[in-house]
């Protein structure tokens, strides 16, 4: 009984965070390119949807908390998150990678043009988001040391982590709606919905936590 509930949860998780984005990718009417480019696209899309999935692999998700043990959740959370973060951090480079294998502007030149197109809000958001994500990555990797060094509570660390990731996700979705090759209306709604629900859940948890201590405003993720 318990086992099958776990399986169901895993299947649902995969369906929502892998199946749906693949479906929207498949249904989108963007012209297909070479296999390599399509693989890279899908990889980036999945990295982002799985990243959104992290909101649901957290203490805020009571269903998951009930089904799995916290260390289990944490392990999966960490494993998926590091993988996804690395792909997303790399995705600007992945975009120009195929130019190594075909005619056209050289990869490095393409990269420079891309990251220096400051007229574009999408590019600026991307740069800010990228930096934020790097901060998320580094703070997560060294959280124990940070906690020790600055003498903060683990709970505070969690707020920081939650706050940073919510900000990142807002920026990331915005960036992707503006620039994403595969972010059509369906994909955008999908991402916004997931992010909104995730943020709400997180907000609820923090709210509950904090109503005992200090008052802090709700992250505004659901608006974008």
């Amino acid at each position: 009984m318990k086992l099958s509930a776990k399986t169901v949860a895993i299947v649902i998780g995969c369906a929502v965070f892998i199946g749906l984005p693949l479906l929207f990718y498949g249904l989108g009417d963007v012209p297909r390119r070479s296999l390599l480019k399509e693989v890279l696209s899908v990889l980036t899309l999945l990295a982002f949807s799985l990243m959104l999935g992290q909101f649901y692999l957290a203490r805020s998700n009571e269903v998951v908390l009930e089904l799995f043990k916290p260390p289990e959740i944490q392990k999966v959370h960490k494993f998926i998150a590091y993988g996804a973060v690395i792909i997303i951090l790399l995705h600007p480079a992945l975009i120009v990678l195929p130019r190594f294998f075909e005619a056209g502007i050289k990869p490095w030149d393409a990269f420079v043009t891309m990251v220096t197109t400051f007229d574009s809000a999408g590019v600026l958001l991307g740069l800010v988001g990228w930096a934020l994500l790097l901060v998320v990555l580094l703070t997560s990797m060294f959280r124990m040391r940070l906690i020790k060094r600055f003498g903060i509570k683990y709970r505070t660390w969690r707020y920081v982590h939650g706050g940073l990731t919510v900000t990142f996700v807002v920026i990331g979705i915005w960036h992707s709606i503006d620039l994403g090759r595969h972010t059509d209306v369906a994909m955008a709604i999908y991402m916004i919905t997931l992010a909104a629900i995730g943020t709400l859940m997180l907000g609820q948890l923090y709210w509950a936590d904090m109503s005992k201590t200090v008052k802090k405003p709700l992250p505004k993720g659901e608006k974008s």
Binding site: R33, K37, I95, V96, P98, R99, A103, G104, I105, D109, A110, F111, T113, M114, R181
Partner: peptide
């Protein structure tokens, strides 16, 4: 197409 940095 060949000059486009993001192959759009």
């Amino acid at each position: 197409r060949m000059y486009c940095p993001v192959d759009a």
